[in-house]
Structure formats: C-alpha cells, structure tokens
C-alpha cells in the first residue's frame, strides 16, 4: 500500500499533459477545424465538472478531518465486513461526474487502508447513474433499466471478488 502522506508537493502527469498539449499543437497546425471544437469541448467539460472537483476536495477534507486512518481502514480495509462492500457499492452509485474526478479521493482512501477490491466495486457500480435513470427509462424502458441495474450491482460485487482472487493468486 502506497503512503501518500508527508510527500513533498510535486505535479503528477506532467509529461502526459505535455503530450496532450503537443497533440493539440500539431492538430492546430494541420487540422484547425477539428482542433478548435476539440479545445472548446474540453473547456466545456472542465467547466461542467469543476463543481464535482470542489465536492471531491471538500469530501476528502471532511473524511480526513472526522475519520482517523485506522477508522477508514476499519470501514473499508482488510478487516472490514460485508459493510465495506456495501459502502463501496453505494458510493459508486451515488457518485456523480466522470470516473477520473474521483481518483484523488480514492487515492487518499487507499493510502489510508481502503482495499483495492472495494475500489473495483466502486468503479463498476458507477454505471448506475441515479439522476440519469429517468432518461434511461425513457429511452429503453423500465424493464430494461431494472434488469440492467440489478446485473450491474451483482457484477460490481463479483468484479471486486474476482479482483481479490487474482491479486491473492499472484501473491501466493
């Protein structure tokens, strides 16, 4: 388990960001018609998910303020019971916005002892989007939405379980 605490401040993914900037630069030189709307769409995405970033920062701070690392490990760590799985499942379902917006919070929880299996469950259950359920029902019907949501939840738990098996088989 990686410990992120007390690490000196350093930007992460600098080279990745630089590569994307170079990609845009090349695109602006050779295909301005695609580059301009792509940049506009990126800005639009950024503006749309900025409130989610704020929520994630606040949520991380609140968790760190009210819960000690060993408490987090108790809820979501190796010794957590079935409740840990349910917390991860519920967290995934209610979390809003794109998956990458939740990376900082999950990384923080992981450094405090959250099991990888539960992170897998969190990501897998994110396919159920509560605010978008009415739109899904409108497009595909109620029966489809209920059946799909049921399988997503079961599948999320199974993915976490199989991830644990894979990890353990690699260790042993």
């Amino acid at each position: 388990m990686k410990k992120q605490q007390n690490k000196p401040f350093a930007f992460r993914g600098k080279y990745f960001f630089l590569s994307v900037c170079i990609l845009y630069g090349v695109l602006f030189l050779f295909n301005r018609e695609s580059a301009q709307p792509a940049l506009l769409k990126s800005v639009h995405v950024l503006v749309r998910i900025l409130p989610i970033f704020v929520v994630v920062i606040l949520f991380t701070a609140l968790l760190n303020y009210f819960l000690q690392p060993r408490q987090i490990a108790g809820y979501l760590g190796r010794d957590s019971s079935y409740m840990g799985w349910l917390w991860a499942l519920a967290g995934g379902v209610i979390s809003h916005g794109p998956m990458y917006a939740w990376y900082p919070l999950l990384e923080d929880l992981r450094s405090n002892g959250m099991r990888d299996e539960l992170i897998v469950v969190f990501f897998a259950s994110r396919t159920i989007k509560i605010p978008l359920l009415p739109i899904m029902i409108d497009h595909f019907g109620l029966k489809f939405t209920v059946v799909l949501s049921f399988y997503i939840l079961i599948g999320a738990l199974l993915q976490g379980y199989f991830y644990g098996l894979l990890k353990r088989s690699k260790v042993s």
Partner: peptide, 11 residues
C-alpha cells in the same frame, strides 16, 4: 496536469 490531460483527450 493529469486530470487536465484526460479532459483534453476527452474533448
């Protein structure tokens, strides 16, 4: 930078 890179790719 990591998140901005992803957002750039999404666009």
């Amino acid at each position: 930078p990591l998140l901005l890179g992803v957002i750039g790719l999404v666009g």
